Simulated assay, not measured.
Amino acid sequence: MSDPDPDQSIAPPEVRPGRKYPAGAIILLAVAATAMWGASRLTWVTVSSTDGLTEPRTDELNGGVWFGALTPLALVLLAAIAAVLATRGWLRRMVGVLIGLVAAVTAVPAFALLTGSGATDTRAATLAELPGRATVTEVVTAPFPAWLTLAAAVAAFIAAVLLARMPADTARLSGKYDNPVFRRAAATEQVTKQRADTADAPANKLSERVLWDALDAGTDPTEDIAEPGAAAGDAGADERGRNAR
């Protein structure tokens, strides 16, 4: 009897036949996070002001200032990629729902800026940290960062829809056998099964990795395991002894 492949005795393949990674959703999340981070570095609003005592002042407010949550939300989307890879089933659908909420929150300030309802003199003066005596003379908005943010929100929303409708049997990045705890438990189970099989059939040899995992779990792979040939020899010796008597 040929020995089983050690790699196959350790763990099954990470991706089972017929399962696929949610590549489309992952790409959309990466694009959305990158777009949001880029928008946070661009100038959204330019504020011109004067206080009557000094030269007129101009302040450029980037996305990180005008929409303070933009960078943290981009990081949330990056973390969501890891969560998508590590989950499946209803947990992955829940991640999709959370991503949808992030997309909605991201779209609100960009839409408000494009419609003209978000760039007020009071808000611009507050974010520019103008002195109390200063007067805002002009507020100029830049549409491109807002459109870029909206595009990121749309990409994140599409990714959320894809994840929410993802079949339960899609693959995840690492299976339970990659976890040392589960791997040791599986090794102990294989050792126990081998002990039960040695009485009726020749035992399959365990791989070196399984033996080490079993030792790590506190199970001695050599305990109570007898080679079939040795057991047969002992039985024959006992029989010959009885015949001699």
Rank of each mutant, 00 (worst) to 15 (best):
Trp147Phe: 13
Phe67Trp: 08
Met94Trp: 02
Ala226Asp: 05
Val154Met: 08
Leu85Ala: 08
Pro4His: 04
Ala86Thr: 07
Asp51Arg: 09
Leu173Ser: 03
Glu138Asn: 09
Ser48Glu: 02
Pro145Ile: 00
Met166Val: 00
Lys20Gln: 14
Ala203Asn: 01
Ala86Tyr: 08
Pro13Trp: 07
Gln8Gly: 02
Lys193Glu: 14
Asn243Val: 15
Ala214Thr: 14
Asn243Ser: 14
Leu98Ala: 14
Asp7Arg: 08
Gly100Trp: 01
Thr149Asp: 07
Ala124Gln: 00
Ser40Pro: 04
Ala39Val: 00
Ala119Phe: 01
Ala201Tyr: 14
Ala83Gly: 14
Pro56Arg: 12
Ala199Arg: 15
Leu211Trp: 01
Ala226Phe: 14
Gly100Thr: 11
Ala86Met: 14
Ser9Val: 13
Pro228Ser: 04
Ala232Tyr: 02
Trp66Ser: 06
Leu29Pro: 05
Glu14Gly: 02
Thr43Gln: 09
Pro202Glu: 03
Arg16Asp: 03
Ala237Gly: 04
Ala153Gly: 15
Pro56Gly: 01
Ala237Asp: 13
Ser2Lys: 00
Leu29Tyr: 02
Thr149Gly: 13
Gly24Arg: 10
Ala69Arg: 01
Ile27Lys: 01
Ala203Cys: 09
Ala203Thr: 07
Pro17Asn: 03
Ala244Asn: 07
Leu127Phe: 02
Val210Gly: 02
Ser49Leu: 03
Pro202Gly: 06
Thr219Glu: 15
Gly241His: 13
Trp212Val: 15
Ser49His: 05
Leu211His: 00
Leu113Asn: 08
Arg242Ala: 12
Thr198Asn: 06
Pro6Ser: 02
Ser2Pro: 10
Ala203Asp: 00
Asp238Ser: 09
Ser117Lys: 07
Leu127Ile: 15
Met94Pro: 00
